[in-house]
Write a protein that binds this DNA or RNA. Sequence first.
DNA 1: CGTCTATTTGAGATGCGTCAACCGTTGTGG
DNA 2: CCACAACGGTTGACGCATCTCAAATAGACG
Lengths: 237, 237
Amino acid sequence: MLSPEPTAVTPHQPALQYAGHNTEQAAGLEQRLAKASLRRVEAKEFVFAEGDPATHLYQVETGAVALYKVLCDGRRQVLGFAYPGDFIGLGAQGEYVINAQAIKPTRLRCLPLSSLSQMARQDPRLGFRLYEALASELAATRELLLTTGQRSASERLIAFLLALSRRNERRGQDAKVFDLPMTRTDIADFLGLTIETVSRTFTKLRMLGLIELPQASRVRLLDMERLRSMEGSDAEA
Amino acid sequence: MLSPEPTAVTPHQPALQYAGHNTEQAAGLEQRLAKASLRRVEAKEFVFAEGDPATHLYQVETGAVALYKVLCDGRRQVLGFAYPGDFIGLGAQGEYVINAQAIKPTRLRCLPLSSLSQMARQDPRLGFRLYEALASELAATRELLLTTGQRSASERLIAFLLALSRRNERRGQDAKVFDLPMTRTDIADFLGLTIETVSRTFTKLRMLGLIELPQASRVRLLDMERLRSMEGSDAEA
DNA sequence: CGTCTATTTGAGATGCGTCAACCGTTGTGG
DNA sequence: CCACAACGGTTGACGCATCTCAAATAGACG
């Protein structure tokens, strides 16, 4: 049920490539990030685990990270996937409350929380940016809740694919053909389904001529119109 | 640090309650709230609806409010319930993105967002507290996601009841006997079940001697031990 | 007392989960 | 270079938890 690991729960000492120098006072978040230390994690390696002391805010530079919570018996709920540009560790106070595990080789910018709060004190707009980022994470989580709570398996998978498509569109990438960096298990645990149901639903969408799967990890959306109509969209959309 | 644990029931946390002992930090908020205008809404009346321009941050004074999103075909996901002390409308920017509807006669303190952002500019600590409150709401939503995505009907209902119980405990109220201000429909839409399943599951828990239902809207938890063991608890709890 | 709504209960249908077998790819060591 | 193991993904058969449809019951309120 749970993915292959518990591979060794990585002790949380980031393999820092080079440490950032911290002399500038009112540097913006971007400038600060550009100089931030870099950390590389391999696929399946943890960025941090639930219960670890919260030390850094991370920004994904390349790769992808799965965020999840687990029940005591191993059932797992993936809360989201972080792609380049996304922040990980927002809202953490004291301890991380979720697990963050790379799903492919990943590079991360690391911002010590201490320096972050210091910066926020100096520049209120930074605090506002973090607040906004947190608000959109909340909005995304609510949307996922609506999906897992109310939608059917097909609707869930379509909503998932369309969300990826929209994200690509926003970034000027191909909205119809893209890779799925995560495994079927990750998708299943994200959508509250089993891998068998995810697989069968992929096949069903393929049979309906709605998508193509050139490889298991690559998808082409063929009929956006119909996909959108089958998503079970928000009332206010 | 932050309060004990996020509950699936309350998106908002006591961190921002009338903190009489916390007057030095963000004193403006409490003063402002005490003087804030009051609004009364009847049961079933909206505090605000999805798409409404966001104007106020509300704090529940008495009563209870359901927060939810709906799909175009009417399926509804309740995201949480706000009780006295809880804030409604956090993270809203431009427009409210969810519906907030009273489930019983309710009194609300109203804080115009304009004056709030002004206050936040003057006192950075206020911004931090709003950030914390938002982080708690995110944590609660994630917990609910774990529940609807991974737990069985019985586990969901038990998790719901235990969350209410913990909330009461935190507030020095009875942890074993309390009212359910929401309807079975609200509970069903909260847990991602149907009202029939909710009703049958209540009956099942009653038959097992785990709870009593003196009235449909009142519950007594009889065997906390066993209820907790049947909740399907977090790994990190 | 009567109407309306909320809740409970029953019977039957079904979508998804479970268990199991099979397949394709990757990587590894003889 | 091949054999084979390990892993991720697909497919099939079957069971069951939950949904659907329907009706009875209980409360709430005028």
